[in-house]
């Protein structure tokens, strides 16, 4: 299977995605494609709707009855926002890493096996090992799998959370400011892990850190007040953005 071909098929297709909340409109008609083999960074000031955008992709927005979501999202051609879709099945194919590491109050092994325990899947040990290796955490915890997950450091915990989603072998990986509060070494390890993972997955990385977007992603999307202002290959966006608003944000005129 050739991996570095020009990928013409979008793994994730988003059409006219809009979200309304109790205080007004949060997302305005987002239109975006994300491909397998790329890391898409999503940048924008606080309150731009980045987190809400991510949460639409795995229908975590279902959990908030005050949100109204319209539009279409297709994963590998299959619609995900229609009523016939079971959000539970969707979430097993779309993994999410949150901005604060949330190890479940269990052992490391139990954390990793948690997703599998929901589906009664076998081959747990193999998948756990390969997920930990993909998150660059295997060497550090391979002898400690029975220890409580909270014994790990912050950076290790976040890599654990990454591995936890990878055990499910998702097609899309969503990361919401995963490195906020982490030390630079852990940040680097996670960014390296993503570079490996993007081969098989579509990776969307929301980040507040413009520099991280610049170094760790292939394409970057700029979100402002719920609107997708601009999306372009990362180098292009950072050296020659088309929109003034993008240029202003990148140069730190507002944040």
């Amino acid at each position: 299977m050739k991996v570095d071909d020009v990928v013409t098929e979008a793994r994730l297709r988003i059409e006219s995605l809009s979200v309304w909340g109790t205080r007004g409109q949060i997302l305005r008609g987002i239109r975006l494609d994300v491909h397998r083999g790329e890391i898409l960074a999503v940048i924008g000031p606080a309150g731009a709707g980045k987190t809400t955008f991510l949460r639409c992709l795995n229908r975590m927005t279902d959990l908030d009855p005050g949100l109204l979501v319209t539009g279409d999202i297709f994963i590998d051609g299959h619609p995900t926002l229609t009523p016939e879709v079971d959000a539970v099945l969707l979430r097993r194919k779309v993994g999410m890493v949150f901005s604060v590491p949330v190890p479940l109050p269990m052992t490391i092994r139990q954390n990793l096996a948690f997703g599998l325990s929901l589906t009664g899947n076998g081959r747990a040990a193999e998948r756990i090992e390969s997920a930990l290796k993909a998150a660059f955490l295997w060497d550090e915890v391979k002898d400690r799998l029975h220890e409580p997950a909270r014994n790990l450091s912050g950076g290790q915990q976040q890599r654990l959370c990454l591995a936890r989603t990878l055990v499910m072998e998702p097609d899309v990986l969503l990361l919401d400011e995963p490195c906020s509060g982490l030390d630079p070494i852990s940040t680097r390890k996670i960014e390296e892990a993503l570079q490996e993972l993007k081969r098989d997955l579509a990776v969307i990385l929301v980040t507040n850190n413009v520099k991280q977007a610049a170094r760790a992603s292939d394409r970057t999307a700029f979100l402002l007040f719920g609107e997708l202002v601009e999306v372009a290959p990362t180098d292009e966006l950072f050296t020659n953005p088309r929109e003034t608003r993008t240029r202003d944000y990148i140069e730190g005129r507002f944040g």
């Binding site: 990928v7 098929e9 994963i75 299959h78 016939e84």
Partner: peptide, 21 residues
């Protein structure tokens, strides 16, 4: 690889959705 992007409707008709209830 190389196949043109097909319309979502065509996709839906040819394969069952893995997310269907």
């Amino acid at each position: 690889t190389g196949r043109l992007l097909s319309s979502p409707e065509e996709e839906r008709l040819t394969r069952p959705s893995p997310f269907a209830r």
